[in-house]
Amino acid sequence: MKVQEICFDEYKIGEQRVTSGRTITEADIVLHAGQTGDFYPHHMDEAWCRTQPFGRRIAHGTLILSVAVGMTAGDINPMAMSYGYDRVRFVRPVFLGDTIYVTATIREKRDDSKRPKHGIVVELVEVRNQGQQIVLACEHLYLVER
């Protein structure tokens, strides 16, 4: 990780970060189920899943969100902090063995009415699979010093 101080005014609309790939494994799914208590059969029961429309197990949407967030967290900006996630959508299933890639694009900058010394930066996060299909999309909000 590297430290890079970027203030609100230095963020540019359209600026983009793209990650390398990460393959989703059995261990990822089992660990996430154990951490969250989500043992829903769509994630854990291979035999049952063969009788369902997707025909196989799928990764938890919250697992893919968590992994994607981690994939984009390589740089530390002490001028900014995560303010939350909006409009989270699980667009397509992610299967065991799929490889995901994340593109994060600065979409918007706006004032923060509660904190005049800060602004809000909105980053569009799109997670794609190895076939370049979007599997998850959301907006990541940053609270950034001016």
Rank of each mutant, 00 (worst) to 15 (best):
H32E: 06
V102T: 05
Q16K: 15
I24V: 14
D75A: 14
E126F: 07
V121Y: 00
D28Q: 09
K109D: 00
M71H: 13
S113Q: 11
K114M: 00
C49F: 01
R89A: 12
G97W: 09
T36G: 05
V67F: 13
R87V: 05
I13G: 05
P78V: 01
R17E: 14
Y40G: 08
L63P: 11
T23D: 03
I120Q: 01
R87E: 13
L63I: 12
I64H: 10
E108Y: 10
R89E: 04
V69I: 15
A27S: 12
K12A: 13
Q52K: 10
H60I: 08
P41N: 05
A73V: 11
D38Y: 02
M71I: 13
V121C: 00
H42S: 11
I100A: 08
I100P: 07
T51E: 13
R115Q: 00
G21C: 02
W48I: 04
G37K: 03
V67R: 11
T62V: 14
V18N: 11
V94A: 08
D75G: 08
V67M: 13
T25F: 06
T36D: 03
R89M: 08
V125N: 07
V94D: 01
V102Y: 03
V122D: 01
I106V: 15
M79S: 02
I13N: 05
M44F: 01
G74R: 08
G55K: 02
I76M: 14
T25I: 06
V127W: 05
M81G: 13
G14D: 07
T36E: 06
R56V: 06
D86F: 05
T51K: 14
Y11W: 14
I106G: 00
R115P: 00
N77W: 01
R92P: 03
Q52V: 04
V91Y: 09
T103N: 04
G34K: 04
G119A: 00
T51W: 04
T103E: 12
Q16V: 15
G37Q: 08
